[in-house]
């Protein structure tokens, strides 16, 4: 028998510290596998943010830079502007990206920075034990919306994917989830498409992952998946909000012609 699935070389092998059933682990695996499958593990620099995934710089086996809370897109800008032929991505949670880092993400997208942003939306601040995040749903109880998020008092959730898709600099924006195998396979396709959009030099690529937070939602992992499907999907519809027309074949063609030009130059 041959191995059809094993741990990817794209991860360092350091065991994840994430809670049982936390979908961070799935997204880590898919990004890491994608780097290996696309032959870019050696030419990628990732930027870790601050939150549950602060430690991702020890998990991803590519070069990793740990950024201050909310600033990963700016750090990635500083890296990519210098390493134009390398791949750069950020890995951020919803507190990091949609709250303190809101200016950085909007301007990185507006500038069309040729980076990939992988955005984990689990509707709470995980690491600091379940505070309300900009993506917390109306009515959702958190440690800082103990009576359920009330719009008149705490405003409305932010749909980041839709928000960024309005920026011309954003070339590809998609929202995916990991609630079942079909969605997981689709999520990995989105990751690879984001990397290809970057490699083709088309601009800012963004994938939002609707994720679970069993611990802070106070739900078992499988129940958390159900809650996500029942509560989060209505607020955060899945799908491609920008660059849906770009096919992988087209992207590969652009990348090939770019490489040909570089060889000529």
């Amino acid at each position: 028998m041959a191995i059809v699935f094993e741990k990817t070389e794209g991860l360092t092998g350091k065991p994840f510290h994430y809670c049982p059933g936390c979908t961070h682990g799935i997204v880590h695996r898919m990004i890491a596998e994608s780097m290996v499958e696309m032959g870019i593990l050696g030419s990628t620099v990732g930027v870790a943010s601050v939150g549950c995934s602060y430690n991702s710089y020890e998990y991803f086996n590519c070069d990793m830079v740990q950024a201050a809370h909310g600033r990963a897109p700016a750090v990635a800008t500083g890296i990519k502007r210098n390493l134009k032929d390398k791949m750069v991505f950020t890995y951020q949670g919803d507190g990091d990206l949609a709250s303190i880092g809101c200016a950085e993400i909007i301007h990185a997208a507006a500038r069309g920075e040729k980076i990939c942003v992988f955005f984990i939306n689990n509707a709470v601040y995980g690491m600091t034990s379940g505070q309300m995040a900009p993506t917390t749903l109306l009515g959702q109880v958190t440690t800082t919306s103990p009576f359920g998020r009330d719009a008149s008092y705490q405003g409305y959730p932010i749909n980041v994917a839709e928000l960024l898709s309005n920026l011309t600099g954003a070339a590809y924006v998609e929202r995916v989830t990991m609630t079942d195998t079909k969605n997981i396979v689709n999520a990995k396709k989105a990751i690879q498409k984001a990397f290809k959009v970057q490699e083709a030099g088309l601009g800012f690529a963004f994938v939002e992952f609707l994720s679970t937070c069993p611990t802070n939602w106070g739900k078992a992992p499988l129940d958390a998946m159900e809650w996500l499907k029942e509560k989060m999907l209505p607020q955060y519809p899945l799908g491609c909000f920008k660059g849906g027309d770009l096919t992988v074949a087209q992207l590969d063609e652009i990348i090939a012609s770019k490489k040909a030009e570089e060889v000529k130059a």
Binding site: V65, R71, A74, A76, T77, G78, I79, A103, H107, R111
Partner: peptide, 26 residues
């Protein structure tokens, strides 16, 4: 060279952090 007028001084110093971590004078 690389010139970016950042959206804030906070973003600017973090772009510095990025370029420096990649090994470039900034």
């Amino acid at each position: 060279g690389n010139f970016v007028q950042a959206e804030s001084e906070v973003a600017a110093i973090n772009m510095v952090y990025g370029a420096a971590s990649a090994g470039f004078r900034v």
